[in-house]
């Protein structure tokens, strides 16, 4: 058994203090210790994007950081981002365009698309595809997802 490390962070606006194993990924910590199961683990090596979460305002892979590294940091998951309402336009567009089937990749795609649209409010289609290239979807073939992000961009502008 490895030595536990005490770590304090803010998760979805709430202060959290826990003793964690150094080897526990941030994504596993959010799911197992905090019950925030909207963060999904697909490949666990940074390729699929299902574990995308927001740290200090920027998206990153939840599987490539350790919970013990988050001392003093601010973490936002799909649950927090949804409750804040900041994803509402994207979520409406995804629903209207049927931009998900099984939904496993959707939380990561929504958080990625939200950061992309914040930096690029009027994106061309190719730029949307490039921005989402780090998020794998095995159901949809991506067309509906790109459509939904494009229509959310229009709705927001």
């Amino acid at each position: 058994m490895d030595d536990l490390v005490v770590v304090s962070m803010t998760v979805n606006g709430r202060a959290v203090r826990r003793a964690v194993s150094p080897r526990q990924s941030l994504a596993d910590f959010l799911r197992q210790d905090l019950g925030l199961t909207g963060t999904h683990l697909g490949c666990e090596h940074g390729v699929c994007g299902a574990c995308t979460i927001v740290v200090d305002g920027r998206i990153q892979r939840g599987c490539l950081s350790f919970a013990a590294q988050m001392e003093g940091h601010t973490v936002e998951t799909i649950e927090g981002a949804t409750a804040s309402g900041r994803l509402a336009a994207l979520q409406t567009a995804f629903r209207e365009r049927n931009a998900l089937q099984c939904g496993f990749c959707t939380p990561g795609i929504l958080l990625t698309a939200a950061e992309f649209l914040a930096d690029n409010p009027r994106p061309i289609r190719d730029a949307i595809r490039t921005a989402l290239s780090g998020n794998v979807c095995r159901c949809t073939g991506y067309h509906a997802i790109v459509d939904a992000v494009a229509s959310a961009a229009e709705a927001l502008s």
């Binding site: 940074g46 994007g49 995308t52 920027r58 998206i59 990153q60 892979r61 490539l64 950081s65 990625t112 950061e115 992309f116 921005a131 290239s133 780090g134 998020n135």
Partner: peptide, 9 residues
């Protein structure tokens, strides 16, 4: 160099 989430980190 890498996807958006990778480049942030």
């Amino acid at each position: 160099v890498g996807h958006l989430a990778i480049c942030n980190r």
